[in-house]
Design a protein around this nucleic acid. Structure first.
Lengths: 290, 290
DNA sequence: GTTCCGCATGAATCGATAG
DNA sequence: ACTATCGATTCATGCGGAA
């Protein structure tokens, strides 16, 4: 049975109680600068880096050497200009010892219509990947996507040169992979994710759709691993992790959110094991990414 | 008749001869750090900001107060980590006096193939928008795109609340917009562009597809305006600008490229006006963006 | 003439090998 | 140890020749 700790309290204080090198994946979407002011007080863009760095330092401590930190964030436009605090944060985290290994783009397919005279709708967010080491765990096969028509065209008639390359190259060469393609009708994705935002039918509005943490949990963890969200909010990361048989820890300063997430988790945790397995399979099949 | 000046020489030196406040749009894709070494010598990531800033300073001078600078660039991964020189460049250009107004994402549908243990294929590039003032010229209607199924889905099932809002809100409210959508099958795009790179099977390989400068030329200029590309390369920006009845200036350090671009421009400039118009219309119809 | 299919090739990135 | 070059991977695109 996997474990799910929902902890109420100050992020940095709680983080300091977590053992070092114990977390496989950190996935979080912290309050953006000047957003969610009602609940978090609103951190001004000027102060954002200063505010975030102590948490980043603790995250660096608790993450396993082979683990990954994925940070979902997007600076907004203020007075006609984009804030630069995210850029400054990346530079500052590098100085802390983080490696900035990749920047994924989340393309929000259905961002809400809107019109401004000086800009278009903002349809993307950053997913910044940080690591402690150049070698980290990545399970690429877990996020492979269905191939298009391409495969069938390509495989239907192997050219002579393909066959020549087949034999003339080394054993691990091109030809080998053709047989791989026959076996698996899937291809690796790129660093651009096309996901729709979720409808806000739920009582609490989640900052991101379930498919987002799901994708990264698949990519960077295995069953039984531990996922941490230090700015839990609606608990999407934890609920998805739980469904995927990963242990998870969620930290949240707002007591009410903790209660809501515990309520949402309860029915899942109480299900008999077989039903849970079924749930996991269903979810996997439903997962959509283009 | 529009004008097209292809100038051979050092970028900064030539820029200094251009009158201040004379350019409506700067669209360019400079050599990225450590790329295109054969032709440009390859600027190291460490030196990149230092190398680019003098040019950026001249560009700030020649751009009209209502003009726009669009910079196409993407940092690459070296030894498992992403370079940060682009982030540093944005911060440095702000100190120069530029406003960083927007970051568009170019999603490259046909990015370079490859497989690595620690990352997926890089399928996007940055299009950084800079301005001199908060007020700049933007012709949003020029880049409106055909609406997809989304419109029909959305309109076929109007909820009760939608209908209530229809009548209860102000004239410029949601309901008004719905009727607008019915009238015109076009929608404003977002800040994510989906374009394929152009294939190198053409006689001259361009770093970016024609649709890319075309989109920004439409968005930020009108006929008779002047477009500048200070790192011309294959001259895609200038050729597209010319076709769209915009004046253009291209600066290029490699003499041979200048000659090639002049050759490509010659037949267009010699066409009788009517044929040119036809050419422009054809191009518009071919333009594809999702 | 069309449509179909083979083929070459990139602003890529890593790891191994060589100097 | 550090840098330079080379080989391997693998996909959308457009050209050109074939059917």
């Amino acid at each position: 049975m996997v474990n799910c700790d929902i902890i109420h309290g100050d992020c940095i204080q709680i983080l300091s109680t977590i053992p070092e090198n114990s977390i496989d994946l950190i996935f979080t979407s912290p309050p953006y600068a000047d957003q969610r002011r009602a609940t978090y007080g609103g951190i001004s863009p000027d102060k954002y880096v200063e505010w975030f760095l102590p948490a980043a330092d603790q995250l660096l401590r608790v993450l396993k050497p082979t683990g990954t930190f994925v940070l979902n964030i997007k600076e907004k436009a203020v007075n006609g200009e984009r804030s630069t605090y995210v850029l400054e944060l990346i530079l500052a985290m590098k100085k802390q010892g983080w490696l900035w290994t990749e920047e994924f783009i989340w393309h929000k397919k259905n961002c809400y219509p809107g019109k401004w005279s000086n800009r278009f709708r903002d349809a993307w967010e950053r997913l910044l990947q940080f690591n402690k080491n150049r070698k980290f765990k990545m399970y690429q096969e877990a996020v492979m996507v269905p191939m298009g028509d391409w495969k069938h065209k390509r495989l239907s008639k192997l050219s002579e040169t393909d066959k020549i390359r087949d034999t003339s190259k080394t054993v691990s060469g091109f030809g080998k992979n053709i047989s791989h393609w026959l076996d698996r009708p899937k291809a690796y994705p790129s660093n651009v994710l096309h996901l729709a935002t979720e409808c806000s039918n739920k009582k609490h509005s989640a900052a991101f759709p379930e498919a987002l943490p799901e994708w990264f949990i698949k990519l960077f963890t295995q069953e039984g691993d531990t996922v941490l969200d230090p700015f839990m909010g609606a608990g999407t990361t934890n609920i998805v992790a739980n469904r995927m048989n990963r242990n998870s820890i969620g930290i949240e300063i707002v007591q009410e959110y903790c209660e809501l997430v515990r309520q949402r988790l309860k029915p899942i945790l109480q299900l008999p094991l077989l039903t849970q397995q079924y749930e996991i399979i269903r979810q996997k099949n439903c997962f959509e990414i283009h």
